[in-house]
Simulated scan of single mutants.
Amino acid sequence: MLERTLYIDRVGAFALDRLSCLRNEYANNACTLCQDACAHEAFVFKQGKLRLSPLCTQCGACMGACPTKALSLYGHSLQKALDFVKKEDAPLFACKGEMPCLGALSVDEWCAILLEGKNVTCHLLECATCEHNRGSAVEQRIRVRIDEANDFVGKLHKRERISFASQKPKESTRRAFFERFIAPSKFVPSVPEAPRFELKKVLKTTLSASLRVEPFSFLHTKEIAQNCDNCKECVQFCPSQALSYNHDQTELLFQMGKCIGCGICEDICKKEAITSVKKEVDLIDFAYDRAIVLMHHDLQVCLTCKCAFSYKGGEKVCERCASFEKEHAQMFVLASQSH
């Protein structure tokens, strides 16, 4: 745990876990979601690595955008938000009291909150004068996420909705979030929870049968073309283990419930064989991390190098050997034939 602290950037109560950051761990990744969400340019690159600068205001507006939950705020968690909904008759979310900026919540987290079975109200009336909401960018992201959460829960035939307050609520007697939760001088943020864990957990108790829905921003699906050569790089570099092989490595498997849509598998595929697609999905597959077969490989032994390869028909020679023979054909011409 002590070693982990070496890779955590902190400004007060806010922390960036660099070990969980896609931009730091994968050279081919170009994620800028936290930077795009920050109005204060608190995320900077140093020697090619994303770091947190002292400009951070600890507002938490960027947290809901991070696909790996590498960003955390001391005193805030989805579980606390869920507990708040459970104990309140008419839950009201605002960036005061026990909540940071509502931009800290992602679409799937709003879905999990709504599936607690209560209508929720969000107070965004102070966004207009908020220093973190430049150009109304933060407020717009919050509204888009909430609208998507409402749409998703509606597809489950649930009537609960998140609405927006039309007037300012009565002043809360609770002190502001950052007065209630002052981060201790020494603390280590917990290892980030698997993305969408709470949503999948509640779906397991909600769904009684298969339910197919249209694509949502947190549901990702993949397809693989026949030119896949079974190089295995997409599996090796998948940060969430959404891609894997069966026991004899003849089938490439995909688990939608684990995919975070980072696109690393697509960027690293030299054949450009794997792609993201938008299509209806079964929420049972999502909730239970069910695996589907993306590609079945017919493994054969190459007659030249004697290594196993994905056979596509014709002569049983792997692509590498066939390319080498073609490129260096002159090397295989007998000396007597060259005259």
Rank of each mutant, 00 (worst) to 15 (best):
R10Q: 13
R134A: 07
P169A: 13
L199F: 09
V235E: 10
F178H: 15
E98D: 11
Y311L: 02
I264W: 02
N227C: 03
F45R: 00
A183Q: 10
L124F: 01
P67E: 12
L82W: 05
E193K: 11
M295S: 05
K170F: 11
L199V: 03
F197D: 04
A94E: 15
E160T: 15
L294T: 01
I113R: 10
A165Q: 05
R145G: 03
R134W: 11
N119V: 05
A65F: 10
G48R: 00
V85A: 02
A335E: 14
E214P: 11
V281A: 15
D36E: 06
Q241F: 03
A329M: 09
T68R: 15
L82G: 04
T250Y: 01
S163Y: 08
Q35Y: 09
P184W: 03
A149K: 02
S166V: 06
E41C: 03
L52H: 07
Q249L: 07
R196F: 07
M331T: 10
L19D: 03
F309S: 03
F177S: 07
Q337N: 14
L73R: 06
F324L: 10
S338N: 11
R10Y: 14
S172E: 14
K326N: 13
S338T: 12
E251T: 04
A176E: 14
D89S: 15
V277E: 08
K168L: 15
L33W: 09
F84S: 08
G117E: 12
C122T: 15
C59Q: 09
C111E: 08
T68L: 12
G103F: 04
V107A: 06
F187Y: 15
T5Q: 12
S323Y: 06
C234H: 05
E327K: 15
T275R: 10
T5N: 13
A13E: 02
L33C: 13
C302H: 03
Q35I: 06
R196G: 10
R4C: 05
E25S: 08
L71Q: 09
F254C: 03
S172K: 07
F14N: 07
E280H: 13
C318V: 06
A183M: 12
Q249N: 12
A65C: 12
L299I: 05
C318Y: 00
L82M: 14
G257V: 13
Q337T: 08
E327T: 09
H297Q: 06
R212N: 08
A176R: 01
S77K: 08
F178P: 09
F254L: 00
I162F: 04
A273R: 03
K158H: 11
C307L: 13
N119T: 08
F93Y: 14
I113V: 07
D108Y: 02
A287Q: 02
K87V: 15
A287W: 01
L52A: 06
